[in-house]
Computed example of a mutant assay.
Amino acid sequence: MTDKQMHIGWLAEIGEPVGSAGARAAGQAPPWCDPDEYISRAQMIERAGVEFLVLAETVRPTLNPSVLVPLIAAETSSLGIVPALAMTDYPPFMMARLLTTLDHMTQGRVGWAVATDIDGSYGSSPSRDGSKATAQPLSVANEYAQVCKELWGSWEPDALVQDRTRGTFADPAKVRTIDHVGEHFRVRGPLNTVPSRQGTPPLVSAMSSTDETDFVSRHAEVVLVTADGPEEFRRVRNEIKNTASEAGRDPDDVKVYLAVSIQVAETPDLLPALQNRGPQRSWPPVGTPSVHLTGPTNTIATDLEELHDTSGADGIVILGTWPLSEVSVICNRVLATLRRRGRIHTTPHTNRSLRETLRGRL
């Protein structure tokens, strides 16, 4: 065991919970449509030392995660907020403008959980035509991400002048069209908003298949990986880092997190019920191997330390748990134990962008 600080993320599925039941008054919105549901939990995980929150949609009735970003940002001070937005639901120009706007509204704390979903299984828009995209998923996803990056780069960092005496808002030599004409997209640009604090929001990818290695190695700054243990995780991590290096990137700029689901049972008699119920989440897809920890607080905390230290993970991401009682138990018991052991930071990293937090700049 080492005393290396652990970096913790949290992936929450927003929308109708798995197995939810019970009568509701006619016309009454379900609890997961209440803004306080998201604010209270976000504040709780921020206090617990979690560094970023991924807001993922479910295949059940859900909400648009982008709308929750400024809501949560207004009530937190250091938590990174990462909406999962499907490429199939937004044209590249709209996606780039939306994320730049959110980066402004969060003062640099937003990221983009890239939902490639080229086969049409994730996005919510009923009007899109995914037939061509399905035939060439990797080329579509790579080109889409590249267009967004070109749009974010269409303003140079010092392009904004705002000189009233000269009547100059921006230096035209530093704002350019991108004139992108590709196999799948035609986009002119420039982006019609000013650069945000991060310029390009960090891209986060939840990787459940090795088919995505090329995409995440080229574009992602954080990769959430499911694996059945440290050895499998190390293999996937090394493949991602090596492929990123071959693509001309610094492998240290790609942070690979091990995805873990947690269910706390302080006494043995509670274990059978939890094991029968299983983890309450829909990501990763059924059949994808992942680490699932069940047991008392101290055991889970020790297991997390061991997984983190033996796998070589850049961090741990907690999967899918969002009911208030479960969030409270994980934060106030498991993560509190890790804080007492000195494995998680005890003070929030205020005034840092999400990218600075991910790269460990103090």
Rank of each mutant, 00 (worst) to 15 (best):
H104R: 04
T134S: 08
Y90T: 07
P91C: 02
W112A: 00
S77F: 08
M95P: 12
S131R: 09
A73W: 15
S78Q: 08
A141R: 06
A74E: 11
A84E: 15
A113V: 12
R109F: 02
G108S: 08
V110E: 12
S131G: 04
V82E: 11
D129N: 11
I72L: 02
C148F: 00
A84R: 13
G111K: 04
A73Y: 12
L160A: 15
T116Q: 12
D103H: 09
A96E: 01
L79C: 03
G130L: 06
L138V: 08
Y90V: 03
M87S: 03
G80N: 11
Y90M: 04
E75M: 13
T101V: 06
A74V: 09
R97Y: 00
E143V: 08
T88W: 01
V114W: 07
S77A: 13
D158L: 00
H104T: 06
P92T: 01
A74P: 10
E143Y: 15
T88G: 03
T116N: 06
R109M: 08
T76N: 06
P126F: 05
I118P: 00
M105V: 06
A74L: 07
A96W: 04
Q107N: 10
S139W: 13
A115W: 09
P157E: 08
L138A: 11
D117A: 09
V82S: 13
G80D: 11
Y144R: 06
S131V: 06
R128H: 04
L71N: 07
L79T: 02
A159N: 00
V110A: 09
A73T: 12
S131T: 10
A135Q: 12
H104M: 13
A74Q: 13
T100E: 10
I72M: 09
D158F: 00
A115M: 14
A84P: 04
P91R: 00
A113E: 15
G80F: 08
E156S: 01
L160Q: 12
A145P: 14
A86E: 07
A135R: 06
I118C: 00
Q162S: 08
N142R: 15
A73M: 02
Q162V: 06
M95I: 08
Y144F: 10
L151K: 07
M95V: 06
K132I: 11
W112E: 07
A115L: 14
V110K: 00
G123Q: 08
S139H: 05
T100D: 02
A135K: 07
L71E: 03
G80Q: 07
Q136T: 07
G123V: 13
Q162T: 05
G153M: 13
K149G: 14
A135Y: 09
L160G: 15
L102E: 15
W155C: 09
V114C: 15
E150Y: 04
V114S: 15
A96V: 09
S77R: 05
T101Q: 12
V147R: 03
